[in-house]
Amino acid sequence: MSLTVILGALELGGIFAILSLGLYISYKILNLPDLTVDGSFTLGCAVGAVTTVGGYPFMGLFLAFFSGCLAGTVTAILITKFEIMPLLSGILTMTGLYTINLIVMGDLPTISLFLKETVFTPFQSLYPYGNLIFIVIILVILVFLLNTFLKTQVGLALRATGDNEDMVRASSIDADKMKLIGLAIANGCVALAGAVFSQHQTFADINSGVGMMVIGLASIIVGMSILKSDKILFQLIAVILGSVVYRGLLTVALQIGLPSSYLKLLSAVLVVIAIASTNLKRRKKRC
């Protein structure tokens, strides 16, 4: 395997680690399966691409994060105020976002960023490691921020909400507000990943979000089974590790000659096997 292939895998693994960190908040901390992800990832791609075309690639990252927060907020409102079940709420937001994303992209299914200045441009002097260095910087900042946030009083309340909602309501914590904060941050991260992804790939595609929820989930499961820890910091690192390992596995599969169109099926099957094996093990223990 050439250096380019390995670096490519690491870079993509890093980008999807941003997404997985977001999913860690919604899926692991809040215990909410959030399907908004597929839509908010594309939203991030679209916002990131449009701002890059406009000449503000870094601004694009912030705007993407912010737009993702909005998408998460919409889902949270559907869940808490309108009492629509979480899975359906996510699907509804995701479906609605398809139109929003097309509007953002000016009714074009793809936007090319070829030869445009992106967030990676300033790091080209460090070729071939520039891209990876930038992604690592983002991950370090993100892990630091999330780890600090989850240790604040709000962070503690957020974790308790996913753990035992009855207890949270009986402790004068607004569980609905916690879900809103959590889903906003989660989708903000996902959209940020989308923006970095589109600038890394130098194009944005209206369908790039399909299956992102599964990719994030697979990363979390893989990571948590490699690095088992109760400490938040190590769990965050585990998620990143999982994302990189998972991307590595896919890269190997592609190198061996698997058609790239098989990737989504492979991801889905992997998640099924991972979840099923832990559940079956538990059932065996009970007998």
Partner: peptide, 22 residues
């Protein structure tokens, strides 16, 4: 909250009625 420590649980309880800040 089962996956949080005794101290973290008590910390939440000691915040009852107060504002949950950063």
């Amino acid at each position: 909250a089962p996956s949080m420590t005794i101290e973290e649980n008590l910390s939440l309880a000691s915040q009852r009625g107060k504002h949950f800040s950063l």
